[in-house]
């Protein structure tokens, strides 16, 4: 990563003494200015001093953990240490998926059934629920109890904000489970959606997942320092003994 030129730091300091703190994690002036503005607004609403927040950011702590939220489509997703922060790419992808589902003809007349694996903050099922018809039922699985706890809070939080319909509380379910333990997972899915029609097919219509996909070496080399040091390894690097069992089985 190139060094920050000193003149940039000087100019930043002239603008605000706190701005140089934000330059190392942001790398350029416009995004540092934006972050300073958001941090300032956050400090004002929660009436805490601004400098400690900027210091935390300087050390590389993700902005979303400091502010506690990340906008995700129309939703506001709460972010806490130990659970992966939703990414903008995911947001984009889910919007496309929802548009695709809205235009393609459903195979059945019953409401759509969605299974989300490795749900994390629950951002994917919640955003899908806000974009698709309210009758859509979703089961979301994560191995981390923290993630499940936060995902349930996110559901309540967004219903409270009015970003999600009240029916979301019944139609979106978060369950703790290990996606690599396939028999148990299948049992949980069947228990939730029913046995399906004929030969175990048609239990769910859509499977979405943003699973950990970074290799152990990639985690050490390719990831941004802020991600490596502050976000959970569990959500980024899959367990060492992953076999492609899921791929061979069909729902």
């Amino acid at each position: 990563m190139p060094r920050l030129p000193p003149h940039l730091l000087h100019r930043a300091h002239a603008h605000s003494p706190l701005l140089p703190l934000l330059l190392p994690p942001c790398r350029d002036a416009p995004s540092a200015l934006s972050e300073l503005r958001w941090l300032r607004a956050h400090a004002a609403t929660t009436s805490q001093p601004l400098r400690p927040l900027c210091e935390r950011r300087r050390r590389g702590e993700p902005l979303q953990y400091i502010l506690g939220t990340q906008p995700f489509g129309e939703l506001e997703i709460l972010c806490r240490r130990g659970v992966l922060i939703p990414r903008q790419e995911t947001e984009d992808l889910i919007h496309r998926l929802a548009a695709l589902l809205a235009t393609t003809n459903p195979p059945t007349t019953r409401p759509l059934r969605i299974l989300d694996l490795c749900t994390g903050t629950g951002c994917i099922p919640l955003l899908l629920h806000s974009l698709l018809p309210a009758s859509t039922t979703t089961l979301a699985i994560d191995i981390s109890p923290r993630a499940i706890h936060l995902a349930r809070r996110n559901l309540r939080h967004n219903v409270g904000l009015g970003a999600l319909p009240a029916s979301a509380a019944q139609n979106v379910t978060f369950q703790r489970g290990d996606v690599l333990d396939v028999p148990k997972l299948l049992d949980a899915v069947r228990a939730h959606f029913g046995p399906g029609e004929g030969g175990g097919r048609g239990v769910v219509d859509v499977v979405v997942s943003n699973p950990p996909y970074i290799s152990a070496r990639g985690f050490d080399v390719e990831t941004a320092a802020s991600v490596r040091r502050y976000e959970p390894r569990l959500a980024l690097v899959p367990a060492a003994d992953v076999k492609c069992e899921l791929c061979t089985k069909t729902f």
Binding site: E35, R87, L236
Partner: peptide
């Protein structure tokens, strides 16, 4: 550079 889970960008411009 790499996107996705590798980085966490706040740039929403």
């Amino acid at each position: 550079g790499a996107g996705g889970q590798h980085v966490n960008t706040t740039d929403s411009a």
